[in-house]
Write a protein that binds this DNA or RNA. Structure first.
Lengths: 249, 249
DNA sequence: GCAAAAGTGTTGTCCTTACACCCATGC
DNA sequence: GCATGGGTGTAAGGACAACACTTTTGC
């Protein structure tokens, strides 16, 4: 019920005096710790997975938790998220995007902690987990329970974000191996969106986009006719970024 | 370059010991102030506007700034944003949504301050500004300059967010008076999206959605044939929320 | 009667959907 | 040779884009 201005001041021309010392202003603000939490999606065995560790808080004993850490003093928020990802999985060069900030006063049992959720997609097989502390594990997104903190809410938000995002940008390719079959691609879309799609139309759609490179290789060791393998043409996609218009609600 | 766990602990079965006192863990974290900033868009004289005040910091003398304030100790982030809006404009019952969090270490001259940007849309005429301190004013979005802090970046992000959002959800109606002509609606879309649209197709589009209520009234005091006025059927829209699918990039 | 903007339909194109049969491989 | 999934084409319907003339009002 107050307005923000006016510690260390000094009268000035017009109406309100200007604040000369921003530092003492900021020092008067209440403070809280800021963390980042990474929701890292992967795809394996035709299921969308998310990377979790066991919480190391006793109050959450046995519950699963997102990968997160405090943001350091001089660190960008994005940097902090990349650092967590690197430290926990050993991976670099991964797509990572801010999704939403969660700051309920009681979301952390140790006092208020505001967390910025980042979402990341990576390929379970290509990116072997290099560090396995706290039982770092992939969990099927559809079978989550007993999460620590508000991490279930965070995952739900990120999952919705992903469903939407993957229809506007070809993020899905970050979840697949470098070479993939169209069936794998379709399985991925079906898993993420929770729908089933017509195989022929799906192919037409992707071929007409013209972002797939036919590498003239085939699946091996499959008990049926092997499918062709493709790579995604990231370069071409970057050039043709969509000029987007269409009112549609 | 460290991992997060392990102040006040005590050895335990398996590998890592569990933390029994979350409070002392959180107390060990570095802390920063959290603020919210509101990017309040309005529409007037066929221009998209944003609500700004003069910065009250001397280092930003003469520059414009978003409406913002510190988040109180026991306050939800959303609540804080609504409070700012209420205190600065006198308005309640306005659409408000979290857009993105900005936390560069040097974005505030008084020390690190992390801010959560919220976006709000309201109707310039309907919602008269009740409080006019710090030269609270509407500014054309296309003519911003000399903003304090990183507020120009924040507005840019929110503007992009709005352009996208308004094509998926009928947010635009929050910017118009209760009764509006189709021309007003089209002007609004053209202003926000920065394109010009075919009048007949625009009408067809909106009539076919069937969310406009014909109230059998007409414009008055216009020097040409008066247009029909409509209301937006928020209720019907809520019921028919879009089931959305279409890969499209 | 003139200026200014409202109102109105049709057509072609493209995109989306639905749908069924043959093919290549492993066993 | 059979089971499994890969690969392919077409037709109908719906959405979108382009486009010009008549109507109503104030002055």
């Amino acid at each position: 019920m107050d307005k923000s201005p006016s510690p260390g001041v000094l009268d000035m021309p017009q109406e309100a005096p200007l604040i000369q010392d921003p530092k003492s202003l900021v020092d008067s603000y209440p403070v809280v710790p800021i963390t980042v939490d990474c929701v890292i999606f992967g795809f394996d065995e035709n299921e969308l997975k998310v990377l979790l560790i066991r919480s190391d808080l006793e109050v959450f004993e046995g519950k699963w938790s997102l990968l997160g850490d405090v943001v350091h003093d001089t660190e960008e928020l994005d940097e902090a998220a990349y650092r967590v990802l690197r430290q926990r999985t050993g991976m670099e060069d991964v797509f990572l995007e801010q999704v939403k900030t969660f700051g309920s006063p009681n979301r952390h049992p140790g006092g208020r902690v505001v967390t910025v959720a980042y979402c990341s997609l990576l390929n379970v097989l290509h990116h072997q987990l290099k560090i396995l502390d706290n039982e770092l594990h992939w969990h099927a997104v559809n079978q989550l329970c007993d999460m620590a903190f508000d991490h279930k809410d965070i995952i739900d938000e990120c999952y919705s974000w992903l469903q939407k995002r993957i229809q506007e940008h070809p993020l899905a390719f970050n979840l697949l191996p470098e070479k993939f079959s169209l069936r794998q691609l379709q399985n991925l879309y079906e898993a993420i969106l929770g729908v089933s799609l017509d195989r022929r139309n799906f192919r037409k759609k992707f071929f007409s986009m013209d972002f797939l490179i036919d590498i003239e290789e085939y699946e091996e060791d499959v008990p049926h006719r092997p499918g062709k393998l493709y790579k995604f043409n990231f370069e071409k996609y970057e050039q043709n970024k969509r000029k987007w218009f269409g009112i549609d609600f």
